[in-house]
Simulated assay, not measured.
Amino acid sequence: MNKDKTMRERFRKAQLFFCLIAFGGLLAGCASNAPSISVDETQAFQNINSFYVKPALNSVNPTLENSIAQTIANVMTAKGLTEVSQDEADVLIGFFPFVESKDGGTRLNIGLGSGTFGRSGGISIGSVFSIPVGEQFTEYQNLQIDVTKENIFVYSASGSTKIESNDAITVQRALNELVTSLLDSYPNTKDN
């Protein structure tokens, strides 16, 4: 009887441990849409006076990319920097926009294949595909912005915004807000 009680106690502790891990994963998943920002604190940002916005690293939609570039230029100008040509710029700003779809609903996974399983291991040959049950996908527009000075990263920010509607105006507004939030932590050189 005592052995049985010890086994149940171990099983409960294991259940609690796995529940804590699952809860931690859930919290991390919820926080994953927060921007990730890194600043090189060793840089003398007060000596950075000019910038150049490079074209998107993955050109897909020139109109939206031009809007992103213009918003980056507006934010950096408001921070006290001057937009100049690439050859004259103190820093170069690159950006990489991309869309990600996350499955928010139930999926039916179907596996096809054959295999043999033995005592010491198994081999399985086949394929697996998924069929969504209902249209429950959420699209996120992701954006990476990197500021470099003499090929050294001085500021890097990435984040995402949920796309509520796929029309160009809504996406453009969401991207402009995302750019502003990603560059918000860039050190202000105006009035320094």
Rank of each mutant, 00 (worst) to 15 (best):
F11T: 13
F11I: 15
F11Y: 09
R12Y: 07
K13D: 10
K13T: 08
K13C: 05
K13S: 13
K13Y: 03
A14C: 04
A14N: 09
Q15W: 05
Q15E: 11
L16S: 11
F17D: 08
F18T: 09
F18D: 05
L20D: 03
L20S: 12
L20H: 08
I21A: 08
I21L: 10
A22G: 10
A22N: 08
F23N: 02
F23L: 15
F23M: 12
F23K: 11
G24R: 03
G24W: 07
G25M: 14
G25H: 01
G25K: 08
G25I: 06
G25R: 04
L27T: 05
L27Y: 07
L27C: 13
L27E: 05
A28G: 06
A28W: 03
A28F: 07
A28N: 04
A28K: 05
G29W: 06
G29N: 12
A31R: 09
S32A: 11
S32L: 07
N33R: 10
N33M: 05
A34P: 00
P35R: 08
P35L: 05
P35Q: 05
S36E: 14
I37R: 04
S38T: 13
S38M: 15
V39Q: 03
V39M: 07
V39P: 04
D40N: 15
D40M: 11
Q43S: 06
A44F: 06
F45R: 06
Q46C: 14
Q46I: 14
N47S: 14
S50V: 07
F51P: 00
F51C: 01
Y52F: 07
K54Y: 03
K54M: 08
K54C: 04
P55G: 01
P55F: 02
A56F: 00
A56R: 00
L57H: 11
N58P: 00
N58M: 09
N58R: 13
S59W: 11
S59G: 10
S59D: 09
P62C: 03
T63W: 12
T63L: 12
T63S: 12
L64E: 04
L64A: 08
L64R: 04
L64H: 03
E65P: 01
E65T: 04
E65Y: 05
I68R: 03
I68D: 01
A69E: 02
A69T: 01
Q70K: 14
T71M: 09
A73C: 04
A73V: 11
V75G: 00
M76S: 02
T77G: 10
T77R: 06
A78T: 12
A78H: 09
K79Y: 11
K79F: 07
K79R: 15
K79D: 02
G80W: 05
G80P: 02
G80R: 06
L81T: 02
L81P: 00
T82G: 05
T82H: 12
T82C: 06
T82P: 00
E83L: 09
E83D: 08
S85E: 06
S85N: 10
D87F: 03
D87Q: 10
E88T: 15
A89Y: 04
A89T: 02
A89P: 05
D90N: 14
V91N: 00
V91Y: 02
L92M: 12
I93C: 10
I93V: 15
I93T: 07
F95R: 04
F96W: 09
